[in-house]
Amino acid sequence: MVAQNVFFYLFAAMIVLSAIRVVTAKNVVHAALYLVAVLAGVAAQYVLLAAEFVAATQVLVYLGAVMVLFLFGIMLTRTEVGRSQDLTNRHWWSGIVAAVAVFAVMAYALIDAFGWSRTPLPADTRIAVVDGSNTSTVSDAIFGQYLLPFEAISVLLLAALVGAVVLARKD
């Protein structure tokens, strides 16, 4: 179990430092590349929590598709691909105030409710393994109990696809 903790803190440090660089980087492309590090770290946390199918989906959808979309968005809007100072607005300190206030409330609530050492995760964090792997359990859940939400998501994706084409098309 110690190894899991070592990797948790390693990836947590990577996530937090890269996330801070995402919101402070002076270069839009650098921010996008730091976002890749954040998303990869989050995928690693999913693996630590034994949700390997979600981790694989995170890598495919976020690291693959969404990041390419972001890079296309950066290139197509030509938002100074080089270094530019003008990415943070004048009232950035109000963002600090809001973030610290939100974190104070959430940290107090979390430590109050799930204090350190009171709620260890189950020793083998295998999530509801019926037979086989986590992936087969997820697929059983999606195509059984959650079939209607799954179909709704596919309609949503179709609508988003059509909407994006209609919006971005040059007439």
């Binding site: 919101v23 963002g95 809001a98 973030a99 974190f103």
Partner: peptide, 13 residues
Amino acid sequence: LFCIGVYGVIARK
């Protein structure tokens, strides 16, 4: 991570 995101939404232009 949530709070860093909140800061980014407010502070970025």
